[in-house]
C-alpha cells in the first residue's frame, strides 16, 4: 500500500524533527567532552576527565546526597500516601467523598506559584526553612493530588469480584490492600514512582525558595550555583548538566512506555 517514496519521505521527515529536537542535547554532550573551556566543540580531543573535574569543582558529592535524600524520601512517602488515599477513594469509599475528592483535585489546578509565598512564610515561622523536612513535606504535599487521582483510577480498574472474594475469605481491608489490590495495581504504582521521581529530581523552583542552605540543596540548585559562580568553564558546566540529567534519562531509556503513558494519562484514558 505504502509507496517507497512515501516511506523515504516519512523517514526523512521524522529524522529531521528528531535531529532538531536532539540538537541541543547533542551539542551539550559534545561540549561536555571537549577540552576548550569557552565551549567550542572539539571532538578530535575528547576529554573525559571533564566529568570528574566538574563533579569536584561543583561540589556535587554533597548536592547528590541531598538530592538522594530528598527524592528518596519524598517518592517513598508520596507513593505510600497515594496508595492509601487511592484505596480509600477507589475501593472503600470515603465519608464526604463528594466534597473531599474534588477538594483534593483542586490541588492539581492550583499552581505552585500561588501557594509558595505563604508556604515559605509558614515554614519560616516554624523554623523549617533549610531543612530536608520542609522540602520533602512540600514535595509530598504537592504530589498528594496526582497520587490520589492516579491510584484511585488504578484500584477502580481492579474487578470488583476480586475484592469481594477476598472479603469472603475474611481478609480485612489492610490485608486485601497489600495482598490483593496492590499486586494487581503494580504497573500503575511503578509509573507513579517513576513520575514522582522525575518531578522531584528535576525540581528547581520549590527548592530555590524553600532551601537556601547549600548543605541541603539538591543538584539542580548546585548547577545554578555552578553556572553563575566564579570561574566559567563552559565544558565543565556542560559536563555538570549532563551528570544531573543522567538518572532520569536512563530511567526513561528503560521505562519509556511508563513515562509516556503516565504523562499522557489523560488521553490514554484512566
Amino acid at each position: 500500500m505504502i509507496s517507497t517514496r512515501e516511506k523515504v519521505f516519512n523517514y526523512a521527515f521524522l529524522s529531521l524533527l528528531a535531529a532538531a529536537v536532539l540538537f541541543p542535547v547533542a551539542w551539550i554532550l559534545g561540549v561536555a567532552v571537549s577540552p576548550n573551556i569557552s565551549g567550542t566543540l572539539d571532538l578530535g580531543h575528547l576529554q573525559w576527565s571533564n566529568f570528574t573535574q566538574a563533579w569536584q569543582q561543583a561540589g556535587f558529592s554533597h548536592y547528590l546526597k541531598s538530592s538522594l535524600i530528598i527524592t528518596g524520601t519524598a517518592v517513598t512517602l508520596s507513593t505510600v500516601l497515594a496508595i492509601l488515599s487511592g484505596f480509600a477513594f477507589g475501593v472503600l469509599g470515603v465519608v464526604g467523598e463528594k466534597v473531599l475528592f474534588p477538594l483534593l483535585l483542586l490541588g492539581v489546578m492550583i499552581p505552585t506559584e500561588a501557594i509558595i509565598v505563604p508556604l515559605y512564610y509558614d515554614f519560616q515561622s516554624e523554623g523549617l526553612i533549610d531543612t530536608y523536612q520542609a522540602i520533602i513535606l512540600a514535595h509530598v504535599g504537592m504530589g498528594v493530588s496526582f497520587g490520589a487521582f492516579w491510584m484511585r483510577a488504578a484500584f477502580r480498574a481492579v474487578p470488583a469480584s476480586i475484592g469481594e472474594s477476598a472479603q469472603m475469605d475474611g481478609a480485612n481491608s489492610w490485608t486485601s490492600l497489600w495482598r490483593i489490590y496492590l499486586p494487581i495495581a503494580k504497573p500503575a504504582v511503578m509509573t507513579l514512582i517513576l513520575l514522582s521521581f522525575m518531578w522531584t529530581w528535576n525540581d528547581y523552583f520549590l527548592s530555590l525558595i524553600l532551601v537556601s542552605d547549600p548543605a541541603h540543596q539538591p543538584l539542580t540548585l548546585g548547577l545554578g550555583a555552578f553556572s553563575g559562580r566564579y570561574m566559567v568553564h563552559v565544558n565543565l558546566l556542560a559536563a555538570a548538566a549532563v551528570i544531573i540529567s543522567v538518572p532520569v534519562v536512563v530511567l526513561y531509556l528503560f521505562f519509556q512506555r511508563q513515562f509516556i503513558r503516565g504523562m499522557l494519562s489523560g488521553a490514554v484514558k484512566g
Binding site: Y121, Q124, S125, I129, S212, D213, P214, A225
Partner: peptide, 16 residues
Amino acid sequence: LPWGDVMAALPLKLKS
C-alpha cells in the same frame, strides 16, 4: 549562606 539567600531570609530569621 549565599548573599541573595541571606537577604531573602533575614527578616524572618530575625523574627523567629
